[in-house]
């Protein structure tokens, strides 16, 4: 084994070790004033929270500002977190509440969805080789965005947590303080609306 390989191995072990530490353990350390532990939590959740905020408020820059505030608030409230409970729903609850507050202050439930906001930043993660496929994908994506935009904020929160954050119905119910049945109804409603939207655009499975 060369030195470079050994170093790579150590680095990987270090990384794995770091990743193996649970959110709750990091939160516990952060409660005791370990800001590095908190920094790891920020790294884990910043993308998810920023995207949730974006889905709720509709502006990327505002979403980034709100995300920063959410983390500052989370740090201030950290001592109220019970480390025996799950961290993920807890922080998402702070995040959604901050976004709802913002929406209330702005008094604009209808202003979400600006297509020009979305198009430049669409991720390049699925570049279809066939241009026709790409057109179809863009069409589907636009339908998704329109359906989500047409829904009230609670629905958008549920959908984002489910499909971007991969959270279980139970975790979403905890994060949004709503019954699990409501979470499911929201998801089902979104699916049905999207099914109709896709059919109206002539996109068949």
């Amino acid at each position: 084994m060369t030195t470079a390989e050994a170093l790579a191995l150590i680095a990987r072990e270090h990384r794995e070790h770091r990743e193996a530490v649970s959110d709750e353990e990091l939160a516990r350390r952060a409660q005791q004033g370990d800001t590095d532990a908190f920094s790891l939590l920020v790294q884990r959740y910043q993308r998810g929270i920023a995207n949730l905020a974006y889905r709720l408020v509709g502006h990327w820059d505002t979403a980034l500002d709100l995300t920063q505030e959410v983390f500052v608030r989370t740090y201030q409230m950290l001592h109220t977190f019970d480390t025996r409970r799950s961290f993920k729903p807890w922080i998402y609850r702070i995040a959604t509440n901050r976004c709802y507050d913002y929406l209330r202050q702005q008094g604009r439930r209808e202003s979400f969805m600006r297509e020009q906001d979305l198009s430049p930043r669409l991720p390049a993660r699925d570049r279809a080789a066939d241009p026709e496929d790409r057109v179809l994908q863009n069409e589907i994506r636009r339908a998704v965005e329109e359906v989500i935009a047409s829904l009230p904020p609670h629905y958008r929160a549920v959908i984002t947590l489910r499909y971007l954050e991969d959270m279980s119905y139970k975790e979403i119910a905890e994060a949004l303080d709503m019954p699990m049945g409501t979470v499911k109804t929201h998801i089902h409603r979104a699916r049905e609306l999207l099914r109709t939207a896709l059919e109206n655009r002539g996109i068949r499975p």
């Binding site: 993308r47 920023a50 995207n51 974006y54 990327w60 979305l118 930043r121 669409l122 991720p123 699925d126 589907i140 994506r141 339908a143 998704v144 965005e145 989500i148 959908i159 984002t160 489910r162 499909y163 971007l164 979104a190 699916r191 049905e192 999207l194 099914r195 896709l198 996109i203 499975p205």
Partner: peptide
């Protein structure tokens, strides 16, 4: 299809 489309929600 709707479910798959939702799973492909754009993230930034």
């Amino acid at each position: 299809s709707a479910e798959y489309a939702l799973r492909n929600l754009a993230a930034f």
